[in-house]
Design a protein around this nucleic acid. Sequence first.
RNA 1: GGGCGCAUAGCUCAGCGGUAGAGCGCCGCUCUUACAAAGCGGAUGUCGGCGGUUCAAAUCCGUCUGUGCCCACCA
Length: 873
Amino acid sequence: MTENTQQTPDSAPELPTQYAPAAVEGPLYERWVERGYFTADAKSDKPAYTIVIPPPNVTGSLHLGHAFQHTLMDALTRRKRMQGFEALWLPGMDHAGIATQNVVERELGKEGVSRHDLGREAFTERVWQWKEEYGGKILGQMRRLGDGVDWSRERFTMDEGLSKAVQTIFKKLYDDELIYRAERIINWCPRCLTAISDIEVEYQDDDGELVSITYGEGEDTLVVATTRAETMLGDTAVAVHPDDERYAHLIGKRIKLPLTDRSIPVVADTHVDPEFGTGAVKVTPAHDPNDFAIGQRHGLESMTVMDERGVITVHGPFLGLDRFEARSAIVGALRAEGRIVAEKRPYVHSVGHCSRCKTTLEPRLSMQWWVKVEPLAKAAGDAVRDGKVQIHPADMSKRYFDWVDNMHDWCISRQLWWGHRIPVWYGPDGETVCVGPDEQPPAGEGWTQDPDVLDTWFSSGLWPFSTLGWPEKTPDLEKFYATDVLLTGHDIIFFWVARMMMFGLYAMDGEPPFHTIALTGLVRDQFGKKMSKSSGTAVDPLDWMNEYGSDAVRFTLAKGANPGTDVPIGEDWVQASRNFANKIWNATRFALMNGATVEGELPPAEELSATDRWILSRLNAAIAEADAYYDDYQFAKLTDALYHFAWDEVFDWYVELSKTTFMGGGEPAKVSARVLGEVLDVTLRLLHPVMPFVTEALWTTLTGKESVVVADWPKDSGFRDAGAETEIENLQQVITEVRRFRSDQGLQPGQRVPAKLDLSGTSLAAHEGAIRQLLRLQPAEDGFHATATLTIAGATVALDLSGTIDVEAERKRLAKALAAAEKDKAQCTAKLGNEAFLAKAAEAAVEKIRTRLSKAEADIERITAQLEGLPKG
RNA sequence: GGGCGCAUAGCUCAGCGGUAGAGCGCCGCUCUUACAAAGCGGAUGUCGGCGGUUCAAAUCCGUCUGUGCCCACCA
């Protein structure tokens, strides 16, 4: 596109007038990786800064939520790297037990093969193959995003080293009696055919029906209400409240269980709410957690009536029926016997579903492995209470405490094949042996290993240290543990964060896995609604990256990152960020065309113009502000501040003001070129962690240096110049006001107007050229006749509009402004006349009002003068 | 049933005790030493309702309404 390039001086490189991210980003990323910028050195003398990535599922692909969190983690590590830390951002993947097994099973299903046809060994082999071929798509996408991760340290939770970590900690917990095996009611997925833990259950309100059934015969009857009639086959008691007089006469008696030849006892238990339903509860210890507890208290038998697929196993008319078929069949049979008292009633209640496949879960009595969480959770809570670990934003810690302080034991065994197999062998005489990583499993006749694998979160709980080589005392572990920040969504505080805390403190002798937990919100669409694949509102971030560039996507995400709150994002906003990238591009292009440079020392302040001192003062303030926001994980404020500093102050005002200087040429132009070079250099470095690509392309061009990735992070020199800031603010006011006047007068922006300036009473004399340039004011020639005279900040601007002035429009505008100023004056006067205010208000507040008052008075004077200066109409 | 949060411009959100803000959108006018993905100017809000504290409240307290999320063994 040759017509798209502009002629530039020989020395300046030619840049197209529009930033084309696609051409720039890919090669830059590969160059960074080749040069090893992201590879951390455990032997380095620099202080370490470590973030481990929340390992995406091996089955996953990049979605906006990843893009969001990755942007923030990348920004944090990039900045720390620039600040001179040995920064490590460690990537990797999670084997994601159930999720992956399901994917591969589905694949096999297409070939008409089940995993059982293959057998365990061949099946897991198949999963590994699948992993090699299709897994880790997201890792490639991370390159596109610009993630500066250390690829040499990429880990997978099923790696040999990490598997060893799993076995090591299992053994340690087992030996410390923090892991045990017990038969309990667990959440069972009849489709995945495995137990899942409490937090893997998704509750939703389902429509059910409450049916009332008469139990017993003759005098000894009562009515129970249930939504799960099919489990009555396994009832081993009816429970009533001990104080419930309606049933007092039945307590201790046995009554007949309908449809069976069994009779069951009536027991008294305070768990029963006499207000609910009929106040009598059927008790099925093998199929309901509450009933199981009641069974324990009363020594009841547990009768399992369904198999692992939810099919009735009790001999009789219902044998072989699926649980839902059985439900209606049993209700039908009861009705035939006249035992359905009232007609069934629609009833909405919360039902657990498998978080992986959405199947309705079946509580099931079964033998599983458990982690005794109490001591671990206590330590995890204390670490935050003691301030060893900080949670950002702080109010999220309440949620964390609620969880760790009330945690139930964690069911860790899964009836799956894909995962870390439980390192326990059972002997022929009922022995149980837990095998450590360096031990041989017991050999000989009759010994078998537990067939189950561990919950996928068991291994991810070790992630912050297993990835660094634990249980070996590796240099990596020494250097990079504890990690600095754990940045993740608040949706996995319990799944992952709490588990890492427990395991980290336990395995690393009380040293927590990270010092800071930075919790982010979830990404939403532009109306704040959840994005979902099914409704088609989910966006593939790659589409946006392809169209607008990765920097634009990243900047937009960071701009939405108010701590802990959800992040809405719409395509319009990505466009706005793309525009910002383009603005940076063009501003730098302009600078290069005018010889902007970073060569040579910056002249001392006393040799600089007020404009230069002003921008350098603002620049250093911007550095300080950026640092404060970075340190506080305030990405929305950070990006907002940088956006406005760069666009408004540098690209609009400073660049526009500098044009006059450049046109003048000579030494001032050289100084300006140096200052502009400095300002851009720093601004690009400040933006680099969030927008790595444009900034790299421009910064290397501007400075001729190797890469901004390894540049120093800007330091606030402490330079501030309040005088220059005031001066430029006045200048801005003069320009803005005259522009408004021009606009109100219907003058076209480019139209030149003869004008006389009187800047004698101000500090703006040096800016006359700039004022004339920016306001398109021509020198006054013979016959100049001022038709409008504006007085702003002590400066007088007389314009000759040759009789074309719209006096009425101007009078109206001024009258409005005058009214506003007078109102302001009145407000301030009232305040300053208020003794209570003067007595109690802070000095700064009073001073502010005084300033405001004097400004209002000046405005009134100015506007009055202008009104008087208007031609009589 | 418990807990937490949110209600501010058409939309998405900042501000959290001293003159109501941003981005996008909207209305004018413009190719002007980079950038029309731009420039300049403009309009737009009883800061959810009602009470209270205060010299001063979008900001603190109470209450109501609406809304979102988390937790819980709602037969």
